[in-house]
Design a protein around this nucleic acid. Structure first.
Lengths: 259, 259
DNA sequence: AACCAAAAACTTACGGTGTATGTTTATCTT
DNA sequence: AAGATAAACATACACCGTAAGTTTTTGGTT
């Protein structure tokens, strides 16, 4: 268009890792990880499949990048809140993110080589517990308990064959009708008297279980503070203020509090 | 061999659904679901890949069958225990089963069309809560909280790049060394002062979180029994003894207690 | 403005996947 | 012993990730 002597320049829109990952997430959100193929991704980016490999080492690397991008979407625990409400907010955000990207629950590799967003997120969560008065060991307990619950809930929510309350009622009615008569009475009761109740929505369970866990952690913390009953091999200080990491060089935990 | 006039009879060992599913589980246990291909499964069964389709509708059906077989391995909650120890035992068993078959955590379809072992298991768990004094609604809370935790824990455990304490220490040391210096101080602290502690084993976290959830449920139950503060849309009786399911025909929950 | 290396696109090709379809063989009933 | 049925085998297809080779575009230097 601009140059009349040559054929149309056809301004090829250039690819980069971010655009690739973003497009891949759109595909996976819509059709799950199994819908994400390099050829399909190439189509969406107006590019041949192989061109993607200029920006991504392989499909695993791509999925890893997607997982890290997802972690970047989670609201970090706020420094101005107490540990409980900070963790509560980020947990709610975490669950929303996992509900938005259901495929993310099945990505295994986030533990093997986590990306920067993942590392930052974990560091902040751990820091929130430490600054809230948790010992290193109790921080590990808390971190494990909370995140196990969130991941598991997201997985269960994802595996349900319905989303909206209307779908739920319709699906539950069908499943109830298909249930062998009298063989699973408690399951039938729960379905009939709870799931089929107007306004039932499985997602509402999330906060119930989350608060169960958080209250339990609070109790654990208070017990710890009243009497200093630390298990034997915990060498860490309870308060992190002046604590130093046993690294090559000594590092104050507060060093990167302002990200 | 036996008949000299005809060629060797070659007694083809016949296939059936159980043998197919069992062999598939062996493959998936060893190499994950991605190692499970129809051709590989056929090899293991001394059969062509396509012959498997005489016993299984398609690969999804196969995986579904595998998942149901896994549920059959979980120890059912005992009727002779109180709800808390019954659920505790079956939860520990559940986790062991998921650790033995890590691929099972990612099987989505178990919610969509559950097999008989899955249904029986769920019915028993729900029944245990109901007989323990949980209302229908609180049973839903308890079921969701406990299983979310178990699933999530199994997923986290699976995604760790190490299994044994030795592997853990070695891996943690490497990851710690690779961590950008000072950028993730809390993560580094947790790794150095907890994960690298002799005898650390992530699996030990399971009971901590499980008891946190179970204690929380007990508190929830006691609160409920002291004052009858039921949320508005719960129509179920708190005690299930003489309760009947709102089905076409009335069914006593005790009807199938002896499986 | 002309050149040229480097980056990023495209093209082709290969082995592996699930499974539709058609054929052959084994087994069961009579 | 024979015919029917079930379950095996064989072939083929479309799609997958990606290795290897080729062409085009881009950006920096003259």
């Amino acid at each position: 268009m601009a140059s009349p002597r040559r054929a149309a320049p056809v301004p090829r829109v250039r690819l980069n890792r971010e655009r690739v990952i973003a497009a891949a997430i759109v595909i996976a959100d819509a059709g799950g990880l199994e819908a994400l193929t390099m050829r399909r991704l190439g189509d969406d980016l107006n590019v041949e499949a192989m061109s993607i490999y200029n920006h991504v080492a392989n499909k695993d690397d791509l999925i890893n990048g997607m997982a890290d991008a997802i972690f970047g979407e989670i609201e970090l625990p706020s420094h101005s809140d107490d540990w409980k409400s900070a963790i509560r907010k980020r947990s709610i955000s975490f669950r929303e993110v996992l509900a938005r990207h259901p495929w993310a629950t099945t990505v295994r590799d986030s533990g093997t080589n986590p990306g920067p967003a993942t590392l930052r997120h974990h560091d902040r969560v751990i820091g929130t517990f430490r600054n809230g008065g948790f010992s290193v060991e109790k921080t590990a307990h808390a971190f494990s308990a909370v995140d196990s619950y969130i991941y598991g809930f997201a997985m269960q929510e994802k595996s349900l064959p319905f989303t909206t309350p209307e779908e739920t009622a319709a699906m539950a009615a069908i499943m109830l009708a298909q249930l062998p008569r009298g063989e699973y009475p408690y399951l039938a009761e729960l379905t009939a008297d709870h799931v089929l109740t107007p306004g039932y929505f499985y997602g509402d369970e999330f906060l119930v279980g989350l608060d169960l866990v958080l209250d339990g952690l609070e109790t654990m913390l208070e017990t710890d503070q009243r009497r200093g009953s630390q298990p034997p091999h915990s060498r860490a200080a309870t308060r992190p203020s002046a604590h130093a990491v046993t690294l090559n060089r000594r590092v104050s935990p507060d060093e990167t509090v302002h990200s």
